[in-house]
Amino acid sequence: MTATARSTGSRGVDSPGRAAIRARTLRSDRWWLPPAATTAGLLVFIVYATVRAFQQQYFFADERYLTPFYSPCVSLGCAAEPGAAHFGMFLPDHPLLPYAALTLPFLLLFRLTCYYYRKAYYRSFALSPAACAVPEPHATYTGETRFPLIMQNVHRYFFYVAVLISLINTYDAVVAFRHPTDGFVVGVGNLVLLVNVALLWCYTASCHSCRHVMGGRLTHFSKHPVRYRLWTWVSALNTRHATFAWITLATLILTDLYVALVASGTITDLRLIG
């Protein structure tokens, strides 16, 4: 085999002094598959969520099911569905303004600055790196030291807002058990909303910032037994943060789709009790 001489002006794994190997990576497995799948998964969610957030239709079903993409429904346009607006209507009704414009940006930023999603999109969209020991294409790299990526450090504030929004989602799921005319009822939609909100709590509570706030910032756990207990619980959840991140993307879509299908009359909600 011909010996490889080093080219001048090279960088990365071709830097002077390192082993001169022609191939930029010698990985023989399908290393491109995870970032490709991540890209596809995230794009599906982005497209679906964007379409639904601006559709301004089919967001409230059976006079009690409010989809999470429209919660809280605070636009004047929510008047089209009596009972959907639990917290008043004060935002102008405009086609470019989602009915839940009060919360959607924060949910987006919560996920955008999430430690798991950062890994996911740095790998899949920024290729920084696409996979371990696969060279990235960028000539320079500064990480999260400069604007805008330095803003990733305020993730905890979006976590605080996400907790409030999860409380609103929980409220939506609970009040959905009360039908305006039939009283207490349980339908398949109730179970869908409940499962969705339970998983949203799992994702929110397993957040790395939550883990830090609960007790991670302490140096002496022994002086704070309650916070230590909370920290251990959140730590157990935190090991599945990536799983919850993906599951909740799926349950958000499925929950919204169910509400939309019922609201549009495509399917009928199966009433289990009441």
Partner: peptide, 21 residues
């Protein structure tokens, strides 16, 4: 600040240390 938490360090650790998390 240069670390962008892409977890390759954790992936390759032979001791299974959760370096990133």
């Amino acid at each position: 600040g240069q670390c962008n938490i892409t977890k390759c360090c954790t992936d390759v650790c032979p001791e299974g240390i959760k370096i990133t998390d």
